[in-house]
Nucleic acid binder design. Structure first.
Lengths: 293, 293
DNA sequence: GTCATGTCATGCATTTTTGCATGCACGTGA
DNA sequence: TCACGTGCATGCAAAAATGCATGACATGAC
């Protein structure tokens, strides 16, 4: 023991255990049995001659040395991520796996035709779609290509602006009729997350506003608006595509974050990513009027 | 296959194979059977879905992808090296392994008393001495501490100047007597490696010189001088300490590269390295007159 | 041509690693 | 207090990785 030669995979295991906090969680990350994690960690400690964890009843807590190992292993993981990207970037084939991500509602209302067409055109590509509002880490290849609603394509990422976008106010036809009948009445708003104020730039013709409720999810906001609970601000494409909603003039169309397609520089030009982009970009150009007033 | 999850140890194996050029050489580097190397490489290729090597009759030649993997693995290796140094640097114990390196002749004629004393004072330290003129890579922990004859302590290394040093000309007593008897006679030189000229700054009282032979090793040069084959330039400490050699005035004492003790910054302050330094430095101060005129 | 030496591939036995099942310790909440 | 969940250690059997032995092939020396 104490020969200072550790298996690199054992270092990776130590890193996962530090991050996960318990043997079983780390094992799940690695797709291993937790017993194996425990044994690998013990082996690493033997090889280094240092205790890397304190064994507590509620889990493994890293020592200073354990944190040091995990830190260096994290940088090794960065190297493997970079390698995978570069290999993927060199990949000139149109088969194998391609993972894209986009916000839930953009996929549901806008992107399904492109996805459908892409699958038909490239049947050998194994397309994975991750519909989430979370910003997946393209550096770690959680996705190869992302369609994002954001002004910022990101630092190590390459991006292309697909579309300008506007938001406006929408409500159920009944609520819309009430507002039209009585502009001086109280307008009830359904707002996103922790916004505690009514949107700015509302039309002065409608002087009275209040926030009736908040949600942290746009699907829920839309459902509430559809149910007649109030007025919601949302992107034009979404309000227009939603049954049971009509645009109301309370909030005139406002600029909203643009739609971008982004990918890591390393894989931007790879065959599968390029093929998807070449289908996506003209399609989005063709439906521009769904996004602007 | 082709799931893009490679074992880190397999990446290390690929790196070694790229560097070694053949399965057996790589296996020796890793302390493995060459069959294992071949199987790990095959497994990595399967996982990445890319050929990493061309199998030729005279060895494995890396493809572009293979070089890419090796490159990233090399940076991972840098991380492990840094980790080992930092762990070692934190080590406050006075037992375990300590590796020092110094030029062969410096050890033989100067350092043995220090080494002896150190082993006596710290019997729990497992001292390894690497007597070589090669500059071992302290970044890769080929040694923990080095005593070097060089003006430059190195970039990421920390150094302390131990001693200024001078060289001079030495020869067997018989040759020395001949030169003294006939300063105008031909002085035969034994010079180092590919030096094709007689040392500069020779005393003008001895006008005729020629290079009789060259060696690439100082031990051999000294032996030749001792055998009466000619005059050799060497550090003062070496000529003075060698039986059968006397200083000759052909070349007056010249400044020679200084003696430094160097270690990587990360481990300079570690207990064992510090303990050795604290024994080495005063000892060298006390024998200064062996090195200067 | 023949031999020696280097390379790699492959089948088989051994060693090592891994997963599973069981048992134990320590909390939490009924 | 007692059941229950979570987290860990350990013994044993299955699975995987490894080493060894053999054979094929190319190259260069004689």
């Amino acid at each position: 023991m104490h020969d200072m030669t550790v298996s690199w995979d054992d270092m990776r295991t130590v890193m996962c255990l530090v991050r996960a906090g318990s043997l079983s969680a780390a094992a799940q990350m690695l797709g291993l049995n937790y017993t194996t994690v425990a044994r690998r960690v013990a082996r690493a400690e033997g090889a280094l001659g240092v205790a890397l964890f304190e064994r507590l009843t509620d889990g493994y807590r890293p020592t200073e040395a354990g944190l040091l190992v995990a830190d260096h292993a994290a940088r090794m993981a960065d190297q493997t991520d970079a390698l995978m990207r570069q290999l993927q970037g060199q990949d000139a084939t149109l088969h194998g796996s391609l993972t894209i991500t986009a916000p839930q509602l953009l996929i549901a209302h806008i992107l399904t035709p492109v996805i459908d067409r892409f699958c038909a055109a490239y049947p050998d590509v194994d397309l994975h779609v991750r519909a989430t509002n979370d910003l997946l880490d393209l550096n770690r290849r959680e996705a190869d290509l992302a369609i994002r609603i954001s002004r910022d394509p990101g630092d190590t990422l390459k991006g292309l602006r697909l579309m300008p976008q506007y938001s406006a106010s929408f409500a159920s036809p009944k609520v819309a009729a009430q507002i039209k009948a009585d502009p001086n009445g109280m307008v009830d708003w359904i707002v996103y997350a922790d916004y505690t104020t009514v949107p700015k730039n509302v039309d002065p013709a409608y002087p009275h506003h209040r926030i009736r409720m908040t949600f942290d999810d746009m699907v829920a906001i839309r459902a509430a608006a559809q149910a007649g609970l109030g007025v919601a601000r949302m992107p034009l494409f979404l309000g227009r595509a939603s049954d049971g909603l009509v645009q109301v003039p309370v909030l005139p169309p406002q600029p909203y974050p643009e739609i971008w397609v982004v990918a890591h520089r390393d894989i931007w030009a790879s065959a599968k990513v390029a093929a998807f982009r070449e289908m996506l970009v003209p399609y989005m150009r063709g439906i521009r009027d769904q996004f602007v007033p």
